[in-house]
Design a protein around this nucleic acid. Sequence first.
DNA 1: GTGAAAGCGCTAACAC
DNA 2: GTGTTAGCGCTTTCAC
Lengths: 299, 299
Amino acid sequence: MRPETRARVLKAIEELDYTPAKSARALRRQRTQVIAVLLPDISNPFFSLLARGVESVAFDQGFSTMICDSNHSSEKESRHLDILRAEGVEGIVLVAVGQPDMRKVERLLRRNVQVVSVDRVVEGLPTIGADNKGGSNALTKHVLSLGYERIAYITGPQEVSTARERLAGFLNALELAGRRPVTAQCGHFTYESGYGVAAKLLKEFEVEAIMAANDLMALGAINAAEEAGLRVPEDLGVAGFDHVSWAAFVRPNLTSVEVPAYRMGQVAATQVLSAELRETRLKTKLIHGGTCTACHQFR
Amino acid sequence: MRPETRARVLKAIEELDYTPAKSARALRRQRTQVIAVLLPDISNPFFSLLARGVESVAFDQGFSTMICDSNHSSEKESRHLDILRAEGVEGIVLVAVGQPDMRKVERLLRRNVQVVSVDRVVEGLPTIGADNKGGSNALTKHVLSLGYERIAYITGPQEVSTARERLAGFLNALELAGRRPVTAQCGHFTYESGYGVAAKLLKEFEVEAIMAANDLMALGAINAAEEAGLRVPEDLGVAGFDHVSWAAFVRPNLTSVEVPAYRMGQVAATQVLSAELRETRLKTKLIHGGTCTACHQFR
DNA sequence: GTGAAAGCGCTAACAC
DNA sequence: GTGTTAGCGCTTTCAC
């Protein structure tokens, strides 16, 4: 092309304020260059970090990301799956609310839309998860090594795979040490449920430490303990799981296991975008060893 | 249409797994039914709540939402503005990183893309913000009414309008009471800066209370105080701003002013989507009175 | 009501 | 290289 022509074209672009229209391009090429991340609650710091991880990878590869919030509702999740199909996204990173609507998911897969589950195991989908069992196991061993003997556990809903895995890791470590938990009771991964379960538990049992399946419940347990007149960590040790950012500001500090949400998002996005994938069906993949961090919560 | 034909069509839809392709529709109608929210950091709970507010309104109106993360970078923000134009979004809710690239913004406006600024005032754009000055004023009066006299202030970067407004509200309330702040020093809205500024300040001045321009810095101040051997709230009162959700879990509790991020997002989205808007240029709009919440932090 | 046809803005293919 | 053309899947219009 003659430099002069080139200059004229550039000038026209400038004057007409031209930008190629993505929707036309998408129609013609049958590729939108958009992926989505569909999660239960973007205002939960764990999920929003995960979303950032997805976005960072997509952005680098020239993809846009739609972040969709199912608001903890399976129905809204299902509607979002429809919308995303119509929207023509090329892949979906899914943090499912319970078991997702597999009919919808399969329709997407048939259209060659990559769907990868993160954090929670979904039957029939490749899953990117942390090593919940291993992390819980390591944390429990750490707690035992500090000399705690009478330990209670607050677990999450048993339909959620992460809750089951963390409980399993805990029980396994105890068993290896030839011990049994004082009690294991079920919460809902919320602050309130942690508070409620701990308050009840502290009345009925004599415990030296409480381990919870996530930080929010652990925080509830701390507050319940202090209201029961117990000093933490002098009278009662408390541990959580997730190592969410604000936990670092909580006083007294919370012992926890780091779950690398950002990296999990990155890995999931990479899987979704990787072309190889279009051939091979993936297996579940573990990220990180579930490192046990900060330990100020224990005497 | 004959019921029989109708049935056949429905059956075909089912069999072919048909969903109308949005990109074709968008191309033909020159409307994508997509809006975007472009913000500095989706993993910040304040912004993610805001994003949820935007999404909820858009979803109800049949619009999809693209959440874009500028990662606190003006450059990335600018690139996102380009992408969003190419993508053909019909409106943008913008939480700007400093002053945004107005050339890009104006190109969007010229194309009749609605751009509304939230939280931070942007010259030349309608802004949805909280009543920072009023809220700060009310909080300061509250603190004064509790009998505190020697008050220090930790402000945010003065380029950010919210920081200026909160400082102004504080100074105004003091002035009305015929007082002056012990000192007012600048942080960066981060935990670390709050910690650092407070630690220094407590050495140099004798203060009864520290007020910070946001919760994160207030939390830093609390930790600095406790490390300096001061009990909070017995020896030193501390107040923040934003009333972020995790602040409710912090012990001792933090006095703060609520900034209704979710509602601000909803209002901004409504503005962006409202058709009237296409005619009239908007003015800045205040949401909420900046209510002063929980007061356990003060004796 | 039903059907046919044009065209949105782009890209891929093919001819020059 | 450069120019032309067909067509992606939908909506709108206009003719029946």
